[in-house]
Lab assay of single mutants.
Amino acid sequence: DTINITLPDGKTLTLTVTPEFTVKELAEEIARRLGLSPEDIKDTHNGKTLDPSLTLAEYGITPGSTITLEIK
């Protein structure tokens, strides 16, 4: 299953994830792909900052969802 990550420059990154991924694991994968530190990444969905300890499923993030990435 894939989700879309909207980057600060407007580009989109597509990642393969499972509903059990935590937001922290997602940030780590994004950081790895972009050459950043996971601590520099802030993920938001529907205007809410995502708690790193919760899973994508707990936020109702499903395949095809879009998450907005902010760099701290």
Rank of each mutant, 00 (worst) to 15 (best):
P8F: 06
I41N: 01
L69K: 00
P8H: 08
K42H: 10
L50K: 03
S37H: 10
P52Q: 13
T6V: 15
L54V: 08
G10E: 02
G60C: 04
I61P: 01
E29G: 02
V23D: 00
T18D: 05
N46C: 12
E58W: 05
E70Y: 08
T66D: 05
E39N: 13
P8R: 08
R32S: 08
E70S: 07
G60F: 04
K24Y: 09
L15T: 01
L15M: 10
S53C: 08
T55S: 06
D9R: 02
L50F: 12
L13R: 00
S53G: 08
A57L: 13
K42C: 12
T44C: 12
G35R: 03
D1H: 12
L15Y: 02
S37Q: 12
P38A: 12
A27D: 05
N46R: 02
T55M: 04
Y59Q: 15
L50N: 03
T12N: 09
L15R: 00
I3S: 01
A57D: 05
L54Y: 07
P8Q: 10
E20K: 09
P19G: 04
E70I: 11
L13T: 04
V17H: 03
S37V: 12
S65T: 11
I30E: 00
I41V: 07
T44A: 13
H45E: 12
S53V: 05
L34P: 00
L69R: 00
E20N: 12
V17W: 15
S53F: 07
T22H: 01
L69W: 05
L54C: 10
K24N: 05
R32Y: 10
R32C: 09
D9V: 02
Y59E: 06
P38C: 12
T55E: 02
P8V: 09
E70Q: 09
I3K: 00
I41K: 01
L50R: 02
G60P: 01
G64A: 02
A57V: 12
K11N: 12
K11F: 13
L54F: 07
R33L: 11
E29W: 11
A27Y: 15
I41D: 01
R33K: 09
P38H: 08
E58D: 11
Y59F: 08
E25Q: 14
T62F: 14
A27Q: 13
T22S: 04
T49K: 13
